[in-house]
């Protein structure tokens, strides 16, 4: 479990992140979302014991991130994928992985097996000795992820794991991340890719030099926006907008073509009442669907508010 309590990092007069407090439970995929310069990478670096917090504290499995004696143990538990793969371009994929396995103290036989399995899965076993400088961005990113996982870490920190990847490669990486989750690993992801975060993250924190909001993508949307239900009618009379104002549980109404879009407090209770009211008005209801707000809507709204 990762517990952050008021983590703050300043560089001179610039505050990268302030009062970052949250708990990341074991076995979840936690996303840090935010614009450039929001302090996501700084936070990840502090949790990886690469930089020291200016104030506040954080614990990873009860080990303090600011303590020198705990730093090595924490780094040994974490697999970090930085923003840039940072591979040794003149060396082959095998050696790139092998060196890191040695740094993490992985026994030789286990290292060899792990590298063979990983490179075989990535379709790179036959090209294991070729300099990775000649590989595509996607391949490099996959090797970098494999490098972060070479020691089978309990915590996996991924900084923009699908940045600059094509859709197919992104999909492969996302599936790989979900597979890691199914093994029970705890994954912290920095990402700009909101649809990706929505698809794979259990919980997200919107960050803009401080935590703006934390929650599951759906909960954030629900907490932020009124729930919107769309009623598709066969025909919409011109007086409907005026008549519907008598329904006190409808906070907002608008007509889009033959759809009546209503903001309601509780769709589970309110939808049947709307349908029955519409039928009383002699209107035929063809479809009832709830419109969901995307994480992008949430992100834009919260970041805008957070910046104010």
């Amino acid at each position: 479990m990762i517990i952050c309590d008021g983590l703050t990092k300043t560089f001179g007069s610039i505050t990268a992140i302030q009062d970052f407090s949250l708990t990341i439970p074991d076995g979840c995929i936690f996303g840090l979302l935010g614009p450039n310069g929001a302090g996501k990478t700084t936070t990840m670096r502090m949790l990886s014991c690469l930089i020291r917090p200016t104030a506040g504290a954080a614990q990873i499995d009860s080990l303090e991130i600011g303590k020198k004696e705990d730093a090595q143990k924490i780094r040994g538990m974490i697999g970090l994928l930085p923003e840039v793969p940072g591979l040794y371009e003149t060396l082959g994929a095998y050696k790139n992985l092998d060196y890191f396995g040695q740094f993490y103290g992985v026994p030789k036989q286990q290292r060899e097996e792990s590298i063979r399995t990983t490179l075989t899965n990535l379709g790179l076993w036959d090209r294991r000795s070729e300099p990775v400088g000649g590989f595509s961005k996607g391949m490099k990113q996959k090797i970098a992820i494999a490098r972060a996982l070479i020691h089978d870490p309990k915590y996996i920190f991924l900084d923009e794991p699908t940045a600059s990847l094509d859709p197919a490669a992104s999909k492969t990486v996302r599936e790989y991340i979900l597979e890691l989750k199914s093994r029970g690993d705890t994954i912290l992801i920095n990402t700009h890719n909101l649809s990706e975060a929505e698809r794979i993250c259990d919980t997200v924190a919107l960050v803009k030099n401080k935590i703006v909001k934390v929650g599951s993508p759906k909960a954030l949307a629900r907490g932020l926006f009124a729930r919107t239900v769309s009623f598709t009618l066969q025909k919409i009379p011109s007086t409907l907008m005026k008549d519907i104002s008598c329904l006190e549980f409808v906070s907002q109404a608008q007509v889009k073509g033959n759809q009546l879009v209503l903001n309601v407090r509780n769709p589970e209770e309110d939808n049947p009442r709307v349908v029955s009211w519409l039928m009383k008005q002699g209107l035929q209801v063809q479809f009832v669907t709830e419109e969901e707000h995307s994480l992008e809507d949430v992100y834009l709204k919260l970041i805008e508010e957070g910046g104010q």
């Binding site: 040994g76 994928l81 930085p82 940072g86 591979l87 040794y88 740094f103 103290g105 972060a148």
Partner: peptide, 14 residues
């Protein structure tokens, strides 16, 4: 230049 120091620094080496 290669940006390979960060992953190296993230290992348990001192």
């Amino acid at each position: 230049n290669n940006r390979s120091l960060e992953p190296l620094l993230a290992t348990p080496t001192t």
